[in-house]
Design a protein around this nucleic acid. Structure first.
Lengths: 112, 112
DNA sequence: TTTTATGCATAAGAATTTTATGTATATATT
DNA sequence: AATATATACATAAAATTCTTATGCATAAAA
């Protein structure tokens, strides 16, 4: 069930970015969306996801809204104002990392 | 002195890739080379580097050769045969990660 | 009726890093 | 001459972030 391919530290940014383009999402939905977008390459485990969501909420980057669908519980998360700012920061930091890694791994390649 | 931008799990790959293009290097040299190649964006700390080198050696991916330069100690590392194979694997895994992240972070962008 | 999917959660352990030290020599600066 | 900076190794404690293993519960499918 492992991941192998998720570098540690990138999960928060992934969650924030998904919420930047989807308005509101619940946990299980996020795991499915990531699986879909990455064609099964990234599998966000619940043991990583839920603590990450709780931390983002505690840090004031996400708001939560509980909903009952049928007889099941869902917790919808959406970006706060502060969360939107932080998303922009974290995404561009990751872009920077991606460029840096490209330079290290393939010095002849440049995204610019 | 922190890094902020080094995702956990990428250090081994960085070291291996540097050694794939530089034949042999010693620890301090690696820290300086990374700083140079990334224009100061990535700072490999010694507390991360040396244990990582020792682990790569223990795993049979690196050979070490001690040298005295002036009156100072240097430990030159180079890839073993097995290390070269593993480098190729880890580098393409990272390339895969870079592509995947690009899709998540900027779905309109593709490296292919 | 048993498995799979949906949906949340937490705890123990592993892996990888940061931060803080420690030792020592060489060179540059005041 | 004294002090700071650069070079060069190393380790240990703490923090971070994940995996793996559980647990609970409802709904749908086999």
């Amino acid at each position: 069930m492992g991941n192998q391919k998720l570098y540690k530290g990138s999960l928060q940014t992934i969650i924030l970015q998904l919420l930047a383009s989807n308005e509101k999402m619940y946990g299980y939905e996020i795991t499915q969306k990531v699986k879909e977008l990455t064609k099964g390459e990234l599998n966000i485990t619940e043991g990583a996801l839920y603590p990450a969501l709780h931390k983002l909420e505690a840090d004031g980057l996400l708001d939560v809204e509980v909903a009952n669908v049928g007889n099941r519980l869902r917790k919808y998360y959406k970006l706060t104002e502060n969360g939107s700012k932080e998303t922009a920061n974290k995404v561009s930091e990751m872009q920077e990392f991606l460029r840096t890694m490209q330079h290290l791994v393939n010095p002849k390649f440049s995204l610019e």
